[in-house]
Design a protein around this nucleic acid. Sequence first.
DNA 1: GTTCTATCTGAACAAACGTTCAGATACGGT
DNA 2: ACCGTATCTGAACGTTTGTTCAGATAGAAC
Lengths: 195, 195
Amino acid sequence: MARTQGSHSDITGPRIRKAALALFARHGYAAVSMRQIAFEVGVQAGALYNYTPDKQSLLYRLMHEHMQDLLSAYDELEQSADASQALRQFVGFHIRFHLERPDEVFIAYMELRNLTPENFSEIEALRRKYEDTLEAILSRGQEGGVFDIADTKIATLAVIAMLNGVMTWYRAGGRLSLDEVEQVYWDIVRRSVSA
Amino acid sequence: MARTQGSHSDITGPRIRKAALALFARHGYAAVSMRQIAFEVGVQAGALYNYTPDKQSLLYRLMHEHMQDLLSAYDELEQSADASQALRQFVGFHIRFHLERPDEVFIAYMELRNLTPENFSEIEALRRKYEDTLEAILSRGQEGGVFDIADTKIATLAVIAMLNGVMTWYRAGGRLSLDEVEQVYWDIVRRSVSA
DNA sequence: GTTCTATCTGAACAAACGTTCAGATACGGT
DNA sequence: ACCGTATCTGAACGTTTGTTCAGATAGAAC
């Protein structure tokens, strides 16, 4: 008989979040039931409530942790003083970080509307914080004369949107390697902002 | 007493689709019930089934009609033989067409996963058809030497992703007019592909 | 003015939903 | 060997879900 009760599973919590992540990404938050998540973990639905107060918090935590990871990972990079170098760095970082976490990324921007207003505000603030790091690079280059950008706010959003597009088609082992993808996108981005 | 029955309402069908469109866009397909849609129309849930065999078909039809509209609207444009002109035309068309239909656009690419496999294939084929029109322009310009593009397939997806980003932030009456938005994006696109 | 029929109501269906909780269980500490 | 407690089960709760359908109704056709 498999061990089913009593053991203080330090691993059940992570397993729940992992299962929820995969299911939310594939079917969408609203379309996934607590019972499906529980089944994936190999547990009854009631047991989930030892690890989350409710379904909404499960979603919020996934998104919050992802945004925190994103920001702290970028912070750990030592940014080049040269704006052009910094931009190249950003492009590479963004592509690699996001391609490594397709499920988190998908959720973090498809399930925003399923957050409560308060939760939404917090996630949105983190996202803007990330966007601001890119805009800072663009503004710096603009002032330094290495970039020629009509509107840095729009350019920021345009670049991020473009880079995010990678995730809709990139597949490991496909026609292009990660390095090639990075190179191609850097080519496009560089020229779209260069003086 | 309001007229509630018997009248062959040629308008109920469109009203159902309109309500479904708005609700799906705001809350997501899975989170919207047939009763909510019916309430919005001012009718009982059962009446919806005079106009759609099921909820899934309602979603599919909305997406299919949108993609058809997109393709036929673009076909009606007389495309310039000059690749650069054609690209500019595409950018303007894409931005305007999509900004005029925020709900349809939102659904057409957020609810793909809620389609049955067969329905998904059909919508996906239409989307690829649209993307191919852009790639044709880029390839033409590449061969003619007016563009310098490393990979036209990626460039196609990158441009469309970038343009789609407009819808996440543009609001009528905001800081920029539609003409200005179009101009800024054309600037970015032009430079990202120019020789 | 009667009949016909498309349209809608209102109730019903089984299934699934998120969440709660008393009770069973098995491990860690003693 | 025993206890204490964290963990999980299993059943239950009240709602809501998509969908069906017999019957009511009102406009169209004659």
